[in-house]
Amino acid sequence: MMQPLTRISSRAVYLPEPNIDTDALFPARYLLLMERKGLGEYLFRDRRFLADGTPIAGFPLDAADAQGAQIIIGGPGFGCGSSREQAVWALYEYGIRCVLAPDFGDIFANNCAKNGLLASRMPASMIEALGAAAQAGETFDIDIEARQIRAGAITTALNVADNVRAALLNGWDDTDIILAEDGEHIAAFERLHRQRQPWLFEQTP
């Protein structure tokens, strides 16, 4: 289901503002839409457009040289707040494949990994350097297989967990893997768990 992601080569957009939350990424009122498709146009909606649809000048994603960028260099706490996966679906559909930041909202980072979007945590000083490279218009080259980022004069290691890397490279779906590999482990665990906390099984919740 998920598109494999092996390599990204594009410009990057720098959004250093701390704590950009998932409400900013995807305002709640669009959560009433039940489709995953078509959400890209609501990305950062209220930062980019007034209520009547007039564009707001100056949002970095809308700069002329940011068009087609697949990478966001974010500030600390990127994606904090609500668990809404729409934030990730909207980023993905807009064309973003990678977010680099000093740290992330936990649920947001998990959601990225489930949708073929790389969220990688990097030291704050490196984020600043990469942000400067982004603003200088450098092309970023991110190799997920080799765990490497190159941007202008910078070459640095990409921080990505083994399981996330494998899922991205192969487009794996967690449910398939768990059902295929762990069915017996789950059954064995349930037998033990039922002995320890039988009330969780006997009581109809």
Partner: peptide
């Protein structure tokens, strides 16, 4: 813990 929609399905 809070989880995303994909994880709810999992």
């Amino acid at each position: 813990v809070g989880i995303g929609a994909s994880e709810c399905a999992i």
